[in-house]
């Protein structure tokens, strides 16, 4: 099984965001980057697939500029078969159509076609979930979205997710794109220190794709407006018992009917 994992990274949500530029690649450069929970989930899912079958080959592609090199090494520390950075300037990462086509182009350029492409349910800071289906459409491959887990049953790889009324399992007949969401079972493991050191020494390829035709233009970039609120928070005071009584009275109109 050949698995390609697409990774993007996001501005670390634990730090305030620096917004000095209206160009997304510069916004990315101006902020410390970390893998998003969905990058991590996609990578862990690939590792789980390899745990089950040692002949699984994993290629990770991190989309970004030189500021993303640390993320590439972080991925490499999991002893992947190959890691590369995809120069993202040409992708216009805020443009869903352009990014989908650029990623599809990069995947087509790999020496061997992957059987399975794993991508987080959101890809980087500028995607809200529209990208994975558009990538599948650009490749002309089917999409299994919001995958949570994977396991082998004999020679068959089964992807698993919670559906509306039941757990849904798909036996994979390649090629597929799967978007991955966070789940207790796919929290990214810690790499061994010796592999972290090895990844620091190892080089990696930088892939490029020809600039894709934009499907949209970016007209403005601004800090988000604060959520408006009616009045300052009313803190309940007095003993905990009193506070509970007051809160119960506040919630009374929504009490379930017996």
């Amino acid at each position: 099984m050949k698995v390609a994992v697409l990774l993007a990274g996001v501005a670390d949500p634990r730090h305030p965001l620096t917004l000095r530029s209206s160009r997304p690649p510069e916004i990315r450069r101006d902020n410390p980057l970390v893998f998003s929970p969905f990058d991590e989930a996609a990578l862990e899912l690939a590792l789980k697939i390899r745990d089950g079958r040692r002949d699984t080959a994993i290629t990770a592609i991190v989309a970004g500029g030189a500021e993303s090199d640390a993320l590439v090494r972080k991925a490499a520390a999991h002893r992947l078969d190959s890691v590369a950075r995809l120069e993202s300037e040409a992708l216009a990462i805020w443009d869903v159509g352009a990014t989908a086509h650029g990623l599809a182009e990069a995947l087509r350029g790999l020496a061997t076609r992957p059987d399975l492409v794993l991508i987080g349910r959101e890809f980087g800071d500028f995607d809200d979930g529209a990208l994975a289906p558009c990538l599948a459409a650009a490749l002309g491959w089917p999409l299994f979205d919001l995958a949570q887990f994977a396991r082998w049953e004999g020679d068959e790889l089964i992807l698993v997710r919670d559906g509306r009324s039941a757990e849904e399992r798909l036996g994979l007949r390649p090629p597929w794109v799967a978007s991955v969401t966070n789940d207790r079972r796919n929290r990214l493991r810690h790499p061994l220190m010796k592999n972290v050191m090895e990844a620091r020494r190892r080089g990696f390829d930088v892939l490029t794709v020809a600039p894709v035709v934009p499907s949209a233009t970016l007209k403005a970039v601004a800090p988000a407006r604060e959520r408006t609120r009616r009045e300052p928070c009313r803190f309940l005071t007095g003993s905990v018992e009193n506070q509970v009584a007051e809160l119960a009275a506040y919630l009374q109109p929504w009490r379930a009917l017996r």
Binding site: W94, D128, A216, K219, V221, A224
Partner: peptide, 18 residues
């Protein structure tokens, strides 16, 4: 069409047009 989209974990808004 022109529209506003929230990005960067709800911290930045962009205006896109097509």
């Amino acid at each position: 069409v022109e529209a506003r989209r929230s990005t960067c974990g709800g911290r930045v808004e962009i205006v896109v047009a097509a």
